[in-house]
Design a binder for these strands. Structure first.
Lengths: 251, 251
DNA sequence: CTCTGTGAGTTGAACGGTCAATCAAGATCA
DNA sequence: TGATCTTGATTGACCGTTCAACTCACAGAG
């Protein structure tokens, strides 16, 4: 196994957590794109985070906003407040930095994306739509500039960088596991012959496709209507379920 | 309106048409990736095509395989058998070349993607699944390396290049129009209150999301199962339709 | 029919800038 | 003292783009 520079000290990387946690409940800013966090990079890199964590965070942010190939190492260094030597002390190449970013996403999936919804919502099907709503809010918050970070990288790099592709697939798989867990809990609201892994994959398909269209059109509408149709499909599955006598109801 | 170098002579650009038309029916090659058209670029640029068309075709091919930012001008020139002066004679910048590629895709949507299916299939709903099957074959033919060319560029560039984003949205819109036309023809197989534009958008969402997962996993399976679930959803809508007495059947 | 001017198209070296990556030297801390 | 981490100038390759020189088909003049 290659090194990939995964010798992180111990506790870093929770700046991102706090940021998104805060974003999680607050209403999106409206009007002019004043407080939208794009444009200039963060010029006051958090001094609490060590250099490695700052590099990963800066790279994560820039890859998300600009893509991998369109982001230069110099730009990452400026945003992280570090020098090139530091970067190459922790990461052999720029690509290894990307792998660290994908590791980070994998680690943050549960605490940042899944757990907040699970804490707030108990109904398993509603949990799925709660997760989807998180992406809707992310789109809304960035005026449809940023959607799913993994999907971005998936289409840009999965052809050409096979180890990157592996980590992207892992992120997708973990995401689908969370959905599938909800589906398992809601098994009596689904037909007996329902392949729940495939259904979880379907949910991811709709999320990613919806995000893509929302970004291409700069409107939430295609995302929202896709989710609404998914809801309609879930209702249909519910009606087909054997336990329909104990029929579910949402809102 | 900016120039964008759209002063194409008269008849060019149908090399791509012939290529995909041929691909359209032939079974995919199996075994080692011998005849898969990736790897080395086309070293024998078609001398029939004029320089502008060769540039667009080479750029199209490379952008599809490697992405926009990961493809250098020099590489395009080599593949097209042209010199930089020629490129900048026709296109003010590299981005204008990309816009020409997107124009090309918009022009080729009907003759290459839609018409072959419409010629072969008459049932409107089956036409939709015929179009989706075209993408499945594209994935299969490239061993899941290439999916929808527009989706690629959508996620790579729609944040940062707004005029590019406009053309991407146009391509999406035209695609959805074709689907919506099928849905209009099949109106009696759909509920009366069905929003057919939204349903067409849903079909695109599933196509793009399915292609993304297929590429990330290098397997057709997520794409195919997503399409199967879409079919299930269409069956559900058909059962809900008022004209259900004249129930449809496929296969 | 030749001569000549015109301009679209081509050539490829060269430009300034940025790319990812290197490394020797210095700082910090155990 | 030695290991760990940081500094930042430096590298050569490549980036997108420019441009002066050139080819050549063709149109109008003689």
């Amino acid at each position: 196994m290659p090194d990939r520079g995964k010798n992180k000290p111990d506790s870093d990387r929770f700046d991102f957590a706090e940021k998104l946690e805060a974003n999680d409940e607050s209403p999106p800013p409206k009007g002019s794109a004043g407080s939208v966090p794009n444009g200039s990079e963060l010029d006051h890199p958090d001094p609490i985070l060590d250099t490695r964590a700052r590099l990963v965070e800066a790279a994560r942010d820039l890859f998300l906003r600009q893509g991998y190939h369109n982001t230069g190492v110099k730009q990452i260094l400026r945003a992280a407040g570090a020098n090139s030597g530091s970067l190459y002390h922790y990461f052999p190449t720029k690509e290894d930095l990307l792998l660290a970013v994908l590791d980070f996403y994998a680690d943050m999936l549960w605490p940042l994306v899944i757990a907040p919804v699970f804490d707030r919502v108990s109904d398993p099907i509603e949990r799925i739509f709660g997760i989807l709503d998180g992406y809707r809010r992310m789109l809304q918050f960035t005026t449809c500039a940023q959607g799913c970070p993994i999907g971005n990288l998936a289409l840009e790099l999965s052809d050409t960088h096979d180890n990157v592709r592996g980590l992207i697939a892992l992120n997708f798989t973990n995401w689908k596991k969370a959905i599938e867990q909800c589906l398992d809990e809601a098994a009596d609201c689904l037909p007996d012959d329902c392949d729940r892994a495939q259904l979880a994959s379907f949910v991811l398909t709709i999320m990613e496709g919806g995000v893509m269209q929302a970004r291409a059109y700069k409107t939430l509408e295609p995302f929202e209507s896709a989710v609404a149709m998914l809801r309609d499909y879930f209702d249909h599955l519910n009606e087909q379920s054997s336990g329909w006598s104990a029929a579910r109801k949402h809102d």
